[in-house]
Design a protein around this nucleic acid. Sequence first.
DNA 1: ACCACTACCTGAAGGC
DNA 2: TGCCTTCAGGTAGTGG
Length: 275
Amino acid sequence: MPELPEVEIVCRGMDKAVTGKEVSSVKVNRYDLRVEVPEDFGQRVTGKVIKSLSRRGKYIIINIDDDLVGVLHLGMSGRVRIFSPSDEYDPQKHDHIIFNMDDGTCFAFEDPRRFGMFYLAANDWEEGKRFSSMGPEPLDDWTANDLMQSISNKKSPIKSALLDQRVVAGLGNIYVCEVLFRSHISPISQAKDLDMKACERIVKHSRDVLNEAIAAGGSTLKDYQHTDGSLGYFQHGFSVYDREGIECSNDSCSSEILRIVQSGRSTFYCPSCQK
DNA sequence: ACCACTACCTGAAGGC
DNA sequence: TGCCTTCAGGTAGTGG
């Protein structure tokens, strides 16, 4: 489910629901996620106050008291469901970790495929290699110059380069396809061959697409993904993703959208508009 | 060092 | 109905 816009929506929902509240209890149903959940997860978190939440790339950072952070990644199928004190928690088969707050609020991390992770770290976590090698935030400090530099030696296609979280943080398969379409750049072109103008277009359209998707509540593909169960609707705004065989949305173009496979992932693009 | 490929895991959808 | 194959929004490890 989650690329940057979806993670941002989840992060905002959690922030609103739990920031400033104390954790009264935690239930861990499964420890064998992508990264092993620490055995003492519950003990370390219970009785502590959630200070704030933030996002880095596709990771949600939960600042717990002063010396602890929860690091949450939704993987491919992860969701967070939040229950207000007046709602009753309805357990699901793949609820791995459930937090109960002192005011009766509760949230569950659900992830059928278990590609997600939820672990604890000291609050100087940003020193760790997971985040120190992560690229710039596309909505924040990313420039065309950064992009130009980071791909200047890359022989891989630009599609694959933009999926590399060291190049830019938070883009995934859907939004890379959409960005390249808007930028009129072929996903097949070698990253190192792009000029500064092309990099400028990618940076600009990344901002636009991501901001539009956040404003639309993210994209919902298979099931709901907001923390309150409501749906995002940016999937109706896709120009190319999952539109194989459909006519290109540009008025002046009558080509069909193609699907190819690059680095084992589907790429959707218009062969006429993206050169 | 880089890049493509594979594994990780469950569930939904489509073909027969 | 059911069985089989394919595919899915991500990341990390390997092997060429």
